[in-house]
Design a protein around this nucleic acid. Sequence first.
DNA 1: TTTGGCACTCACCCTGTCCGAGTGCCAGCG
DNA 2: CGCTGGCACTCGGACAGGGTGAGTGCCAAA
Lengths: 339, 339
Amino acid sequence: MLSERRLEVLRAIVQDYVGTEEPVGSKALTERHKLGVSPATVRNDMAVLEEEGFIAQPHTSAGRIPTDKGYRLFVDRLAGVKPLSTPERRAIHNFLDGAVDLDDVVGRTVRLLAQLTRQVAVVQYPSLTRSTVRHVELLSLAPARLMLVLITDTGRVEQRLVDCPAPFGETSLADLRARLNSRVVGRRFADVPQLVQDLPESFEEVEDRATVSTVLATLLESLVEEHEERLMIGGTANLTRFGHDFPLMIRPVLEALEEQVVLLKLLGEAKESGMTVRIGHENAHEGLSSTSVVSVGYGSGGEAVAKLGVVGPTRMDYPGTMGAVRAVARYVGQILAES
Amino acid sequence: MLSERRLEVLRAIVQDYVGTEEPVGSKALTERHKLGVSPATVRNDMAVLEEEGFIAQPHTSAGRIPTDKGYRLFVDRLAGVKPLSTPERRAIHNFLDGAVDLDDVVGRTVRLLAQLTRQVAVVQYPSLTRSTVRHVELLSLAPARLMLVLITDTGRVEQRLVDCPAPFGETSLADLRARLNSRVVGRRFADVPQLVQDLPESFEEVEDRATVSTVLATLLESLVEEHEERLMIGGTANLTRFGHDFPLMIRPVLEALEEQVVLLKLLGEAKESGMTVRIGHENAHEGLSSTSVVSVGYGSGGEAVAKLGVVGPTRMDYPGTMGAVRAVARYVGQILAES
DNA sequence: TTTGGCACTCACCCTGTCCGAGTGCCAGCG
DNA sequence: CGCTGGCACTCGGACAGGGTGAGTGCCAAA
């Protein structure tokens, strides 16, 4: 049974530990927080909290530090999301407004997040499959060589080379381009496969059909390929603020951060809507067992087209971080909607 | 005056220090290398080398470590470039051959370099201005809105939105597209400005001229913009092998690595042809004063279109690193030439 | 249920000692 | 003249021991 006061004690422990990075004892707690009770009482409460697994002591006769479970409780029940200050909001606006293209938007976002939270920021590029098609272009590079260019509503551009089985005339090309666009522009990429299914059959020339099939195959392939889910990270220098026991701590984190696959899986595991906080061992990946990940989806409309977040030590300022992440995601969504 | 043997001693010191990371003394030297002289003699030589500034001792009664000047001499006169082993070459081939597009080539290269050298790898995207034009495409997104797409011979694709002063008809568009391409395809981007100078005047409609001017302005602008010199880095986890005095050491390095501007300047300072090695304080940037940078240009033809390199502690295996960097650069050049 | 008191524990710091690798110097030898 | 062996010296690093203080658990009293 956790009384109101015990929760209050936990909150105080988390706050102090996050601030000082040092195990916090009963006496220091009563001095820094107006709990209205004596250290002895706090000690009793701590004993209970420890029994329940919310806090632990690194060694006997040291203060307590929160466990992953303790942070979890803190995040779920004790802490809100701290809204940003007005100057901070203004800074976000100023910083993001100067972006010229999608790369720039993502780049600025990642730097902004890293700076705001003083942690490692991760921003996923808007996903292809959730965006809508703005335009499909076909360019003839050589008689039997085409370039396929996809342009999304979020400004993302994707290109592929296509080697045709047979030369493809300019008129056929224009024809295909027109038909393709009339079918898919404005539609979601996810729906594209069905929309173009019967396209080859509508061409008369046999060779053309083959070429069209090849083009479509490339198109569909580029939609499926998971590795096209790119992302950008930044603020790795903030890892140096991790703790005192550096090398062994940050090595696996840096390694994990370099594996885009790992990060994408990490973001993928997050909830589709709303903010997700994964604490310590809640992260599947080994190297990230002493980090927390705060992530949220962002998008130009109501729906999320990608995710962004930050990676930091479990001992992080959750309310502040969550506030920053949420605010940045919203503004980025706005920016994307405008462009 | 540096006799042959003194140089030999310096070489031995560098090799041992790079291997062990510990100051190397006279006795250990004579044991590990067949110098044919006694420790006492080596001591005398060391005294001279120290006087000349090639080596130093961290504190009295410790062994010697090479100074930046010592490494410089080592690189310039004592060490060759160590060619890669056949398996290593094969690995490079296998790894790079699977690349599907430019992003992939650069990504694979950076991972390959990082793995091969066990250091931080930096790869610059092929520069626009040094590449040649493969194709210029104009897409009509809206009546008065175009998208300009540039495709280089190295596979790089660059796009820009263009807001036209007036609606631009499909025929005019096709016209412009054709004229533009006929003038610039196969030419170097650097030459584009002169080649398109008089293009607006060749259009009859006044509004069209304005639009053409706008398009060209955007085109030229995209060529000039320095910030388009993108690059990719990888292997930052290798920084953890830096030394024992971590945090203070790698912090500034991580920060420098995040500043693309800094890195670009770093690569920019390298010689146009041949390999460049910058040791310790030879690097202008503050945070990199205890790192060495090995860089080299790479390109599809004889000429370099961009640079790549690695960043590591001054105490690095120069011959091996230089060998890896050179080999990777060559293969990447080949790959680009083929695509 | 809270509180003050009390004995106990242990990480940390400071100190002093010892050890050994490494040095510089010097006199002797080829 | 250059190389060598010997010798005294220096000093960082590892190790041991004592003191300190923050923090704990437990208990009896309010």
